[in-house]
């Protein structure tokens, strides 16, 4: 479904992705784990189109989308819940969600909104409140729900568990694993490697701008090198 090959990207003159190869098949949950500053966010932003690509190629459902502007990738089915949530703090919760469906001006938006409220009941309670006033966990739910409003076939999640209390982390991971039944393919970036690998089908390990390991999620969890470096076991 999504194929990244030889992808490089830089900030100014400093290259931070040195040729990434990665593939996500339809219906999978794939996770990319790696330490701080490995380039995970940069990779995801290249895929969503909000970070310039210096070299290599991104294909989605067979089409080359490397040069497509971000706002045209949504219509193709790629949406992103970005690192740090990035919600619209000056708008209400409901307005945030409706903007998530900005490219789909039709009646299904109301149904999707109802779905989002079912998935995250707290958002229904706060639907008319300013999103800037939500707690960190609620903002994270809003960011995920907003990305789902875009009707992704491929959802990009950047550290959805960051900064959340353990009980919320579990809730977020539970939601992500239910996306499978909705035909949403997921590319999940996480520092919480253990939690991510537990719900993923496959995983990639990223270090300083390179993929250093990849494989089935259960194999990666069992791998001694991973256990030592990322799982702290």
């Amino acid at each position: 479904m999504l194929e990244v090959s030889g992808l490089t990207s830089r900030y100014g003159r400093i290259e931070v992705l040195h040729g990434i190869d990665l593939a996500v098949r339809s219906g999978e949950i794939v996770t990319v784990v790696g330490a701080n500053g490995a380039g995970k966010t940069t990779l995801l932003r290249c895929i969503s189109g909000t970070q310039p690509v210096a070299g290599g190629e991104i294909r989605f459902r067979g089409d080359d989308i490397t040069a497509l502007p971000a706002y045209r990738r949504i219509g193709r089915g790629i949406t992103q819940s970005p690192e740090g949530r990035q919600i619209f703090t000056n708008l209400s919760v409901e307005e945030n969600l409706r903007l998530g469906a900005f490219v789909h001006g039709d009646a299904r938006v109301d149904r999707d909104l109802e779905d989002a409220f079912q998935m995250f009941p707290i958002l229904r309670e706060k639907r008319n409140l300013n999103a800037g006033g939500l707690s960190g966990g609620q903002q994270q739910m809003l960011a995920i729900a907003r990305a789902l409003m875009g009707r992704p076939s491929c959802l990009l999640l950047d550290e959805p568990s960051m900064g959340l209390a353990p009980i919320l982390v579990q809730q977020i991971f539970d939601v992500i694993s239910t996306l499978k039944s909705r035909d949403v393919t997921v590319l999940l970036i996480e520092q919480n490697a253990f939690g991510a690998l537990k719900i993923a089908d496959r995983g990639y390990v990223m270090e300083t701008g390179r993929i250093t390991m990849d494989g089935a999620a259960d194999e990666l969890i069992a791998d001694p090198r991973i256990r030592e470096a990322y799982l702290g076991i």
Binding site: T79, P82, I87, L91, F102, G150
Partner: peptide
């Protein structure tokens, strides 16, 4: 309004 509040997020929702 969304564009001024958060340009990156605005692009991510397809604006």
């Amino acid at each position: 309004l969304a564009t001024s509040n958060n340009r990156l997020a605005a692009q991510l929702v397809g604006i």
